[in-house]
């Protein structure tokens, strides 16, 4: 019949609508451009090298026309999985601490600490890893710059973010559940295990998934501590190179098909993130928006 948008009679409303729409369209165009340009730049590689060879070539030697992204993909996945499996349990425990174990004032201080740490730039984490962690690992098992170093640094880096998100999902568990549990005289851990964690399950999982996204996309920290050798690692002490580090290392001098292959790896990253967002969206609790 009639819709809201056709009804505003006053002139300033029309102006407002127009200006706002313009902004929206411009943002849309900009963000669309991101995808368009990536695809356009990656296209030569996909045509000359082909999708299959990007995963089956003997190795990554762009100067000799070999474009296997697989070692880097392995590097990215291993570093990410390692980082999240280290960070997620600590993050859950941190969140539980703030919500259920800490006295109120202590919880506030701890939260403030975590918030500040969430804001530390990745290059600083990378630097810390480089000067502190890498020599330690090097003493333990040379060479030092390794998969393990990447996992630990990334874990520390994503921990604050995941912990904050997880605490939010614990806090979102309706108070009535907790009061119900307390009224039954349940112990703290019994209540957490049987009521809070199941109720917050999807939120916790979504937080971890977002942590995966963050770890996966990190460039500087892994660039600084992972050693950047193109290989599928055989142990956690072996150096690796991730997709992101590969782009950062080579884009400055790459041209032609090589450059294009780097853009193709950018698209690969974008697709992985897409997958992650779809997963996170599927498990996300429904309270975020909607009336």
């Amino acid at each position: 019949m009639f819709s809201i948008n056709t009804l505003s009679p006053s002139r300033s409303d029309y102006l407002l609508a127009t200006v706002l729409r313009l902004c929206a369209v411009l943002s849309g165009v900009v963000l669309l451009l991101v995808v368009v340009f990536l695809v356009q730049e990656a296209f030569p590689a996909l045509r000359h090298v082909g999708l299959v060879r990007l995963f089956t070539d003997d190795s990554w030697h762009p100067t000799e026309g070999l474009y296997n992204l697989l070692p880097m993909l392995w590097g990215t996945m291993l570093v990410t999985i390692g980082a999240v499996s280290l960070a997620a349990p600590l993050a859950i425990l941190s969140a539980m601490f703030c919500q259920f174990y800490a006295p109120v004032s202590l919880a506030r201080w701890y939260r403030r600490l975590i918030e500040l740490l969430a804001g530390i730039p990745s290059v600083v984490y990378g630097f810390w890893g480089l000067v502190v962690l890498v020599p330690m690992i090097g003493n333990l098992h040379p060479p030092g710059p390794s998969l393990l170093a990447g996992m630990v640094v990334l874990a520390i880096m994503i921990l604050p973010t995941i912990a904050l998100l997880m605490e939010a999902s614990l806090a979102a568990v309706p108070q009535e559940y907790l009061h119900g549990a307390l009224a039954l005289g349940l112990r703290r851990w019994t209540m957490i295990r049987n009521i809070v964690l199941p109720a917050a399950r999807s939120g916790l999982f979504a937080s971890a998934v977002l942590g995966v996204g963050r770890a996966l996309g990190e460039t500087m920290a892994v660039l600084m501590v992972c050693g950047n050798v193109v290989q599928i690692p055989h142990s956690v002490f072996a150096p690796v190179r991730t997709l992101t580090a590969n782009i950062a290392l080579e884009i400055a001098y790459a041209f032609g098909t090589h450059r294009s292959a780097l853009f193709a790896s950018g698209i690969l990253l974008l697709l992985i993130v897409l997958g992650i967002v779809v997963v996170a969206d599927a498990v996300k609790p429904r309270w975020t928006y909607g009336e």
Binding site: L31, V34, F37, G213, G217, I247, F263, L269, L270, V273
Partner: peptide
């Protein structure tokens, strides 16, 4: 949501090209 999760380096690639 997807774009918010895209690694910064991918934006770097775009910025470089565009």
């Amino acid at each position: 949501d997807v774009l918010a999760g895209v690694p910064s380096i991918v934006f770097g690639l775009f910025g470089h090209a565009f």
